[in-house]
């Protein structure tokens, strides 16, 4: 990755502009891609932790009383926040994962920056529409709406 130094701008100024442009593009792409990759990893690990808790909790499907207690617990205010966080993690991981699949299988790497922006907008819409009920009911519970 490019490292910013005091000497670098002077050195680049002597080079043809095409080289300078490609260098700038490359540096920008790595930064966006790096952020996307880090978030993918972070949400991925979080989702595995959630998957473990989720499957473990569903043991109670064999016992009506325990299952009712578990589902009642999932309606507590803190779980509404968790539900929203889960949606954000799933939507991000799914949309960025879709971007990875399109790049790997359909060779869309020249379009990956554009893809990141478009799928980012789709993700924000899905989070807003899907997360609205959780957040609204939470605010209603505390009398804020």
């Amino acid at each position: 990755m490019a490292v910013e130094t005091a000497e670098r701008p002077a050195a680049q100024a002597t080079q043809p502009s095409a080289v300078e442009d490609s260098g700038r593009f490359q540096r920008y792409r790595i930064r966006t891609g790096m952020f996307a990759w880090m978030m993918h990893r972070l949400t991925g690990v979080g989702l595995v932790v959630y998957l473990i808790i989720h499957v473990w909790g569903l043991k109670s499907l064999t016992d009506p009383t325990a299952f009712n207690a578990l589902i009642a617990k999932y309606h507590a205010p803190i779980y509404k926040v968790g539900e929203f966080g889960l949606l954000v993690a799933v939507v991000y991981h799914a949309m960025n994962g879709l971007r990875i699949v399109l790049i790997d299988f359909l060779g869309w790497s020249p379009k990956q920056k554009k893809l990141f922006v478009v799928l980012g907008i789709v993700a924000l819409v899905l989070i807003a529409v899907g997360g609205y009920p959780s957040i609204y009911s939470l605010l209603a519970h505390y009398g804020a709406v």
Partner: peptide
């Protein structure tokens, strides 16, 4: 899982 918020012990959605 509904949009109901259940804060009381023993209460069901």
């Amino acid at each position: 899982v509904t949009t109901d918020v259940v804060a009381q012990e023993g209460e069901l959605p």
